[in-house]
């Protein structure tokens, strides 16, 4: 199990372990896929890991007939708005942290570092109280506002570290030309931080898209249901119709799979940058 750089000896033990783990990863994913294509009546008869003898998309139809499109759109709205707003406000705050030399800027950053350590589970009861008091219970805003808040610390941290790399002279030359802080932010900071915004944006999108506790506690009706919660309620609703439940699982992961294919590097570096989470 050593690093094999320049070493010609094959690492047999490591390879065996890695292929076993690959099987552990792939078998459940393969199972989701083949079961979603299996007709419901064959589910009880056929070997669960065999390729379906009468492969069909019927299970997907049953899912789509049950409001899945609405849940999907709810998830899209919640994810898009949460990520966009958290990126915008965090970038503004990161700019303040990087530019200011005073007590305020330094401590703002410290608070953000502490914020990363706050688990959602610990705050959920007061968050529920606040949302009810604001009259937002069972609305999409009830999901968006806390999602933004809990995305801010890590986003601020990553963006601040990134902005620190921008040479001081760039800011100075714009200021010499009489640019306001806002103008510097829009014209200089936003274009330069695009890679960091993409990295943290993809990561936060994954977090919000798959989030379960906020929807479970802060929404109730099917008009505000988002995807992870819909999977759970499908499991109760469809019960024995396992192919339909797993078809919903496939549909739920498709956008993230697409994001992974398009932006694999961003997602991987976002995850490792998010180590503090």
């Amino acid at each position: 199990m050593t690093k094999q750089t320049n070493d010609s000896r094959p690492n047999v033990l490591g390879a065996i372990g890695a292929w076993i783990w690959l099987a552990i990863i792939i078998v459940p994913i393969y199972y989701i896929f083949v079961t979603s294509l299996r007709p419901q009546e064959d589910y009880y008869a056929e070997n669960p890991l065999s390729w379906p003898s009468n492969a069909t998309l019927d299970a997907y139809n049953r899912v789509l007939e049950n409001d899945f499109v609405r849940f999907f759109l709810n998830s899209v709205v919640v994810t898009a708005v949460s990520v966009a707003v958290s990126l915008a406000v965090s970038l503004m705050a990161a700019y303040v942290v990087v530019r200011s030399r005073d007590w305020f800027g330094r401590n703002l950053f410290r608070v953000a570092l502490l914020g990363i350590a706050i688990p959602i589970q610990a705050a959920i009861i007061p968050v529920y109280y606040l949302i009810v008091q604001l009259g937002l219970y069972d609305t999409l805003a009830a999901l968006i506002l806390p999602s933004i808040a809990f995305a801010i610390p890590l986003t601020l941290l990553i963006l601040t570290n990134f902005l620190r790399e921008i040479p001081e002279s760039l800011f100075e030359s714009m200021r010499m030309d009489g640019a306001t802080e806002w103008r510097i932010l829009v014209r200089l900071v936003v274009p330069l931080s695009r890679p960091a915004l993409a990295t943290v944006g993809v990561y936060q999108a994954l977090q919000v898209w798959n989030g379960f506790l906020f929807p479970l506690v802060l929404t109730q009706s099917s008009s505000t249901r988002v995807i992870p919660l819909s999977l759970w309620s499908f499991q109760g609703q469809f019960g024995v119709d396992v192919p339909a439940v797993l078809a919903a699982v496939v549909l739920s992961v498709l956008p993230m799979l697409a994001a992974y294919i398009v932006a694999r590097r961003q997602l991987v570096s976002g995850l490792t940058a998010g180590i503090g989470k």
Partner: peptide, 21 residues
């Protein structure tokens, strides 16, 4: 410029931390 982030984070993350106590 830092105000929106501070308000959102403070209200939904810091306040709940004291709120739970």
């Amino acid at each position: 410029m830092a105000a929106p982030a501070l308000i959102l984070f403070g209200f939904f993350a810091i306040v709940p931390l004291f709120g739970v106590a």
